[in-house]
Nucleic acid binder design. Structure first.
Lengths: 250, 250
DNA sequence: CGACGAATTGAACCTATTCAAAGGGTGTGG
DNA sequence: CCACACCCTTTGAATAGGTTCAATTCGTCG
């Protein structure tokens, strides 16, 4: 039951982290884009190769620099992909939700994870060994083909972010980040399209390549202009077109 | 013959653009990382699906926004992958040389190229239709698997650039760009490790997400500090460790 | 030699960062 | 159920770093 005092529109997600039923696992794996064209029998077989892991919010799933031995698939919850820098200025590479993967993609023994993954909410994650996954790729060519498509999409998204970081001022970068989040995590809500991830100003800043103070200023301004509604750890997009105008690589 | 007056250490490349012999094509395709594990017979068959295109320096090979119907492989020369923004501030996504690919990776009909590709030197490029390439992927699983590895590498490089743009000051970003270029295009030379691509300050700036003036200032400083040697359209790295110290994400 | 494009340099301006302090929401423990 | 403590957020003012604009120098090629 939600307390009357609580003003945040974000619902508290109580994910049962440590017990994904076999049914749920099969459903999740079936939703993973690159397993979608498989026969049910094959999927069940693949399912057996995955191990199931539960994490509390804040737990690290893997650390940048560790030997990359597994590929992970998010079953439930939100996972932060991040990169550390020596001065403690971490940057957020991506936010993942159910059906998305991360970890060892390079297929080469001896590699290390380039990013750390942290559970942003309580999360359930499926893990498969590098070599097992390699075998799946060789055995089911359509899986490999759709994986190529997904990686092409991610690469293209990364390139777009590169462009935004290069040419947009802080306000535009924040607008672009909010649009991306709204597309990916937004759900209709009386206040606007609510981004259903608890993100601090710091998180937004590290997605936009700026400081939490600058992010805060940009968000205040946007709120004054009626583009968004925002509070502690939440944002709702009210005027999509207005944000797009700011984020437009002009 | 090189003029005595010419001070640039970059050799003038006279690539025969319009006539790659069949032998050369086979050799190039064999060098493409994702075709490396194929039998000679298969390679010859694949070779037949490629068309050969020649470009002069400055020619556009494909334009962002055009329907993405082909995958391209660089056979000879250098290709600039770039993204335009409305205000004319283009950014350089990547520089490609022999064996690297670009173009339609998404495998979905109706997509458009996200970036433009421009011949940076005279260049010879091999092109294959989207559907033909799709068929190759399905027929030769190892090709798909190694392609996944390559894309994982590119994605990881893009993420690293994202981090650099986020946390490094201009000088550090320029240093990082020079290190990357030196790794990829560098060859030993009396002056230092010479980057064998004609790049203007503008090009370097758009790789580092800054202006040509700032790039120029950073380069002047590095030259004063004995880290590099540079002139019009060329750079040679003298002190790799020094650059690394600047580019270190501290 | 002459002309063009590239690179450098200077100075004013502006944006974003930094540092500091105050304000507000959330959840906890009394 | 209230009050407190903690962390997130906001805001202000000073500063540093980068951009912009403009003028000059330099290198390369015709």
């Amino acid at each position: 039951m939600q307390k009357a005092r609580r003003r945040s529109p974000l619902e508290i997600r109580v994910t049962e982290t440590h017990q994904c039923s076999v049914d749920l696992r099969l459903k999740i794996l079936g939703q993973v884009p690159f397993f979608q064209n498989l026969l049910p029998g094959n999927l069940a077989e693949i399912n057996r190769l995955f191990r199931e892991l539960g994490f509390e919010s804040g737990d690290y799933i893997c650390l940048a620099g560790d030997p990359a031995e597994r590929l992970y698939v998010v079953a439930d919850g939100r996972v932060k992909l991040m990169r550390h820098s020596l001065a403690g200025r971490d940057i957020l590479i991506d936010l993942l939700s159910a059906g998305e993967f991360f970890g060892s993609l390079s297929m080469e023994a001896g590699d290390v994870y380039p990013d750390s993954a942290q559970a942003q909410t309580a999360a359930c994650v499926l893990a498969i060994g590098r070599e097992d996954f390699q075998r799946i790729l060789e055995r089911y060519p359509p899986v490999a083909v759709s994986m190529i498509g997904i990686m092409a999409t991610r690469l293209q998204a990364a390139n777009q972010r590169l462009q935004q970081l290069s040419v947009l001022p802080v306000e535009g970068r924040i607008a672009a980040v909010l649009l991306m989040l709204s597309r990916k995590f937004g759900r209709p809500h009386p206040l606007g399209r609510l981004i259903e991830v608890p993100l601090s100003r710091d998180d937004l800043a590290s997605l936009a390549g700026t400081t939490s103070e600058s992010a805060s200023r940009a968000i205040s301004q946007m709120q004054k202009d009626g583009l968004i509604e925002s509070g502690r750890q939440w944002v709702a997009v009210k005027n999509r077109a207005g944000l797009e105008a700011l984020a437009c690589e002009s």
